[in-house]
């Protein structure tokens, strides 16, 4: 019976998401890189001043993986957090506004199954969506740069991005429940995402500058490491608080000691300049999981005490 009830909520929710106008916009945004790649490919075949525009634009030594990264940065990664904020703000608040929530809550176990079903539905929806978006990014990369060695990474990282967006969805949905307004949920969710990013970046900049002045060589190493690290985690998402962990690991490798709160086991993490995705994946999934669980608990608490 439990499965029947939760699957009913999931089916209802996925239908709702798929019928939103915003979903059409998302489809356009997913297809856009492929269309842009086709257009660029058509135009860059022409010669300008004896040189191919292709070479002028991207340089001869730009690899296809880097191209995919570039496309992803201006494509799904760039607006993924916006999608999270948009879906989150609306997730529960619109049901409150539309009177649907009270009908659901008048069913046995309605509150618990409703929250579970909605969260599972939005999880399934967003991870599937970003995985598909990853495939489209890959196609755009193939059109521009030809066959890529790590072709499988694009959809996998798209899926991971979907997971990473989840905490943003839940943060915005929490604001949506508390304010009972989808718009306020979106605005406050976006503000929380941006402000946490600004706060962490600002804090770390102060640490970096103060230590970088004392040790220019280490600063240089850090910058190189940071660039390589960010190259391997282009799909960093969720609330921006996990950035602290990334900075911590990066700094751990270059500056010692770091005046940050000690994180259990973090000092054991070996970060080198030939960092691979498998080094950062546990951290990414760990921070996403913790953020998701905390925000899930807060959303459930807010829904349970809701009076309609």
């Amino acid at each position: 019976m439990t499965c029947n009830i939760i699957s009913a909520v999931i089916a209802f929710e996925i239908k709702r998401e798929a019928r939103k106008k915003a979903f059409l916009l998302m489809i356009v945004l997913v297809i856009l890189p492929v269309m842009a790649a086709v257009v660029v490919r058509l135009f860059t075949g022409r010669e300008i001043g004896g040189e191919r525009l292709w070479a002028l634009l991207f340089g001869a030594d730009l690899g296809s993986s880097a191209l995919t990264g570039l496309i992803a940065s201006i494509g799904i990664v760039g607006w993924s957090w916006l999608v999270g904020v948009m879906y989150g703000g609306d997730l529960f608040a619109s049901d409150i506004r539309e009177g649907l929530l009270q009908l659901f809550f008048l069913r046995p176990k309605g509150r618990i199954y409703y929250v579970l079903g909605k969260m599972l539905a939005v999880g399934i929806f967003l991870t599937s969506f970003f995985a598909v978006a990853g495939v489209f990014t890959l196609v755009a990369g193939l059109i521009l740069g030809g066959w890529q060695r790590d072709w499988w990474l694009a959809p996998v990282l798209g899926f991971l991005l979907g997971l990473g967006v989840y905490p943003i969805v839940l943060a915005s949905s929490l604001f949506g429940i508390l304010t009972r307004s989808p718009i306020l949920g979106m605005i406050l969710g976006a503000a929380a995402y941006i402000l946490t990013g600004v706060a962490v970046s600002l804090g770390m900049s102060i640490v970096l500058v103060s230590q970088g002045i004392a040790n220019i060589e280490a600063w240089k190493d850090y910058m190189e490491g940071s660039i390589i690290l960010s190259g391997y985690i282009p799909f960093l998402a969720g609330t921006q608080l996990p950035l602290i962990f990334y900075y911590y690991i990066t700094l751990e490798n270059t500056f010692t000691p770091i005046p940050l709160p000690s994180i259990g086991g973090a000092s054991q993490v070996a970060v080198t300049l030939d960092l691979t995705p498998s080094d950062v994946l546990p951290l990414y999934l760990g921070s996403t999981l913790i953020g998701t669980l905390v925000l899930f608990a807060l959303n459930t608490w807010a829904i349970r005490r809701l009076e309609l």
Partner: peptide, 25 residues
């Protein structure tokens, strides 16, 4: 107040509500 979501059909809504009461699909 007759507030209801605009997107589903009455049958979709009623069916979902019935399933939430434990009735199989």
């Amino acid at each position: 107040t007759p507030d209801l979501p605009a997107w589903p059909t009455p049958c979709e809504l009623l069916e979902t509500l019935a399933r939430l009461e434990g009735i199989d699909s």
